[in-house]
Design a protein around this nucleic acid. Structure first.
Lengths: 228, 228
DNA sequence: CCAAAAGTGTTTAAACTACACCCATGC
DNA sequence: GCATGGGTGTAGTTTAAACACTTTTGG
């Protein structure tokens, strides 16, 4: 910015909104809050004004911790929205983050001061302001990054089967995948470790559990970077 | 954000910075301004505080127009920086944009109130605040997007030869490319149109000029989107 | 013994890589 | 006539896509 114009009086407020995505085994879901009853478009992403002593990352982390009460949740900056009329009550610029969590851990929404609910991305409720755009952009980002980065495992529990993983990718892409080719490709990345343990609920035969192997993932990232 | 806390008095200023990239035929360059003489780290990206009645896109466009005096310049939002200590003089959050221009059009820097200069990305001057991070992030974004999106043509003049284009991609990737394979790949995208006109300066034989075919590009984009 | 999901392999096509020779022309 | 950059093709490898049968076991 221009150093010689610090005098500018902007009166613009800065908010942070978190698009928190989860996966219920069948569909991608987003965690929304309802702040005012009897309002038409009253669902919104989890958000807050940024505090003077915190960064936008701090604020996003604070919101996320409020929802999850966990550290080390995957989060990345998505986009900053600054349309003049995006909030009729005041001039508010919103820095939006995308977070991915394992939905199963948070079905009971403890410690959150609003009415909250998970909504399928295919069936969003009326949303306030430009929060629908935020959610669509979050979904688009996830679709893009899941190809190159080994992203998306954050949406599953620690242990998962190949069927779970395939369902997740199908939900993200919105189209069916060939089971054999999918498994082949995932295995070729070398980022999963098969456990000697089977999930027995969804089939007679039982399906092996896998865990995401973080160390191998780092190696994969380096290879990918070098290739470019 | 939370509607019930509009009272928050933040006193955080919002700036917009533009990382303007160009290509001089050999190297990627960034357009920087020097605002204060006799200061150690005194080069910076083109920036300004956001005005109360403009969006961040407006502000970025305004800055860009100041430099280029042209409309229709490629620009996209890059990242928002909000570290507490990023500007010692005040709490400033900066929304950063990435712009790509044809450097040849702007060697004489008209209408700009500061000392300005193009710097090679490989040889950056001392930069104020976190502007070095911004530039590195811009370069990274360009590297990522140039693969999937047919981006980067904005950095070349309307007419260019395959050698020019190859040099550009080599500068973006930072590594040499095989001429034959490169041309084959570019042609397979069907986004270029060969003119019946040759550039005769850099070789005896002369090299065909090409132009970027926007309509074909749109088709390419659609195909790509559907594939996902 | 059968229903339901798990597990596995092959064939074909497409994309990418490496690599070498001829062309046109100004000097 | 030769040096310089321009233009093109092919063979080998890797990766992606299409596709079907066998395995396990609870009921």
């Amino acid at each position: 910015m221009e150093l010689n114009s610090y005098k500018t009086d902007q009166r613009i407020l800065i908010a942070v909104d978190c698009i928190i995505l989860g996966f219920d085994g069948e569909q991608l879901k987003v965690f929304l809050a309802q702040k005012e009853l009897n309002s038409a478009n009253n669902w919104s992403a989890i958000g807050s004004f940024i505090q003077p002593e915190e960064t936008s990352e701090d604020a996003a982390g604070r919101l996320l911790y409020q929802v999850t009460t966990k550290a080390n949740v995957y989060i990345e900056q998505l986009h900053t929205f600054s349309a003049l009329d995006r909030d009729p009550a005041a001039r508010v610029v919103s820095i939006v983050y995308l977070a991915l969590i394992n939905i199963a851990d948070y079905h009971e929404q403890v410690h959150f001061p609003h009415d909250t609910k998970w909504f399928s991305l295919n069936n969003l409720p009326p949303l306030m302001l430009d929060h629908r755009d935020m959610i669509l952009k979050a979904h688009a980002r996830l679709r893009e990054k899941v190809v190159t980065n080994a992203l998306g495992f954050e949406l599953l529990p620690k242990k998962f089967t190949m069927s779970h993983l395939k369902s997740l990718f199908e939900a993200i892409y919105g189209s069916p995948l060939d089971r054999r080719n999918f498994i082949k490709k995932i295995n070729s990345l070398g980022i999963l470790k098969r456990l000697n343990e089977k999930e027995k609920e969804s089939s007679r035969k039982g399906a092996f559990y896998y865990v995401f192997n973080n160390s191998k993932y780092v190696a994969f990232e380096r290879v990918d970077a070098k290739r470019k």
